[in-house]
Design a protein around this nucleic acid. Structure first.
Length: 533
DNA sequence: TTCCGACAGTGGGGTCGCAAT
DNA sequence: ATTGCGACCCCACTATCGGAA
């Protein structure tokens, strides 16, 4: 860090000329401008301009801030701490480095009395910020910047600021697993620095993601020759082994090595010294059936007594891809070749089950595979083009997941006011099923699946049905029937039926149906015998 | 000119761990 | 001991921009 003192400009309206440290007010200004324009090209240009202004020491702060993230990651600061408002400062004085230093301090606070201490630090910071700066900081700390530009636009802006090829920057970010690292190297050494970012064992890369398809037939039609793999309902993991050292990362690249000793042990038993594997961690019961996602996730989330958790709910790694073997980067190889290498490294029981479909003629076989996979208790399948490379960090169109969808006709019991672009619209619906008394039992909420037109319509309709208007939304007469899609039931301690819908979303309103025709809790439970209340 | 891929936004539920009550 | 909060797992879907076709 530079030893020069922070520039302080006290007079409101002073001309913000500075050569040392970037002022927070400049970031807040750019963020506001970015939010105000819809054109992505203009957003990119605004970010690029700011990145060019940034000093070397500002870069690791400015880049993540404008990408809507904190360099420290999350800080244990939420609405509880941010809730109280603090009178804003008269004029801008904060530098981004000063803000960063205070947030770093904030992240270190722990132990009894920490909440008060965090509140004090946040209050002090907010008190030194102008109204605009406060709004920017609030968005940053709560993860809701709402400027319509996060990582992807920041990458574009970075490319433009440095003259690098955007595709090269994107790839470097995927391989580094971090925008900051790449940004710093790029701004310090220019586009040539991008070559330093290669796939490295021990350094996690962003995993490839999948799109959805509504059926196996549709997926095979779209992809042609493909692998159909079982989709396990567990936690995605990337396992790196370098000799005796094993590291395990989640989808967001968090390091969870210490929580999964049996996975590390399994990786050490494989016949290879250096590799990177992609797969899923899941728990099977004594009969070899997969346990619920809730059980697996609870186990993987346990940190305090790992040995005890592992004894109660042991997990197994099940792999489906290999990204690197013995120093060779396999990302650009087609899936067919990567899989051939996977079979040499990982024995069958530790691999995802699969079948291969060469084209439309194999659709019946692929459908049988899906049915069999579901019968064995799994979530569905992922259909993958055999000729596709591993697109790190992308939601490539070459992986398509297919899961069964259930539907119900439920009754709207209440609706909550939306935020952001849904401000002024009733958005989040409370959903109820009929119970034995002819009343309705709440099963969960959803805000998904509505078009803007539906939002407008339901806001008006639900207002007509309102029996109570509170700050958060309205409770309504239970008269409106809505068709809901969901992925299954899960146990719940929050809702009275002891279960709730997983991934509920609206398909359409059923104005042709009366609430007495809505589905019942009883029928729902009967349809999902695997989930007892 | 039209189509479609990629992104951002809008939140859902559960579980764990920590601090406050 | 219980409760509340934040982080981090899982996630679906729509609107929009801008390059591809």
């Amino acid at each position: 860090m530079a030893s020069r003192p922070a520039v302080r400009i006290r007079a409101p309206g002073a001309v913000l000329v500075h050569h040392d440290c970037m002022l927070l007010t400049r970031l807040a200004e750019v963020s506001r401008e970015v939010a105000a324009t819809a054109a992505r090209s203009r957003k990119t240009a605004l970010l690029a301009e700011l990145f060019r202004e940034a000093e070397a020491d500002d870069v690791p702060i400015v880049i993540p801030y404008l990408a809507g993230r904190l360099p420290q990651g999350r800080l244990g600061v939420g609405w509880k701490v941010l809730g109280r408002s603090v009178p804003p400062a008269a004029g801008p004085s904060l530098t981004v480095r000063e803000v960063d230093a205070r947030l770093t301090e904030l992240g270190k606070v722990s132990g009894p009395g920490s909440q008060a201490e965090r509140t004090r630090i946040v209050g002090e910071l907010m008190g030194a910020a102008t109204g605009d700066e406060q709004r920017f900081l609030l968005g940053l700390l709560t993860g809701e910047v709402r400027q319509g530009a996060l990582d992807a636009v920041a990458v574009e802006g970075l490319a433009r600021a440095t003259g690098a090829d955007p595709a090269d920057v994107r790839r470097a970010v995927m391989l580094a697993g971090s925008l900051q690292t790449v940004a710093q190297a790029l701004l310090a050494d220019g586009p040539g620095a991008l070559e330093r970012f290669r796939l490295t064992v021990g350094r996690p890369v962003l995993p490839m993601l999948a799109h959805s398809a509504s059926s196996v037939a549709e997926a095979v039609d779209r992809l042609g020759a493909c692998a159909v793999e079982e989709k396990l309902d567990g936690i995605r993991v990337q396992v790196h082994r370098d000799g005796d050292t094993v590291r395990i990362h989640t989808r967001t690249l968090d390091d969870i090595t210490d929580r999964l000793p049996e996975v590390s042990a399994a990786a050490r038993r494989l016949p290879g010294e250096r590799f990177i594997l992609d797969g899923e961690v899941i728990s099977f019961d004594a009969g070899g059936r997969p346990r619920s996602f809730q059980e697996t996730a609870g186990r993987v989330g346990s940190r305090t007594d790992v040995a005890k958790a592992a004894a109660a709910v042991p997990v197994s790694p099940v792999f489906f891809d290999v990204l690197s073997v013995d120093g060779r980067d396999l990302l650009d190889l087609p899936l067919a070749e990567r899989h051939a290498r996977l079979t040499r490294l990982v024995p069958e029981p530790m691999r995802v089950r699969r079948t291969v479909a060469s084209g439309a003629a194999d659709i019946p076989e692929a459908e049988r595979f899906l049915a069999d996979t579901l019968a064995r208790g799994h979530e569905g399948v992922v259909v993958k083009a055999l000729d596709a490379p591993y697109s790190a960090g992308r939601r490539g169109a070459s992986w398509l997941k297919v899961k069964p969808v259930h539907t119900l006709d439920l009754v709207v019991l209440a609706a909550e006011w939306g935020h952001g672009r849904r401000t002024g619209k009733l958005s989040n619906l409370h959903l109820g099923a009929r119970d034995r008394d002819g009343a309705f039992t709440m099963l969960g909420k959803t805000f998904k699946g509505m078009t803007d037109a539906m939002l407008t319509w339901q806001t008006e309709r639900l207002r007509e049905l309102a029996v109570e208007d509170s700050g958060w939304g309205v409770r309504v007469r239970p008269e409106l029937v809505v068709e809901i899609a969901y992925d299954g039931l899960q146990r719940s301690s929050r809702y009275p039926a002891g279960v709730t819908l997983r991934f509920a979303r609206v398909i359409r309103y059923r104005e042709d149906k009366r609430p007495e025709e809505a589905d019942t809790v009883e029928a729902l439970l009967a349809a999902h015998p695997e989930v007892g209340p």
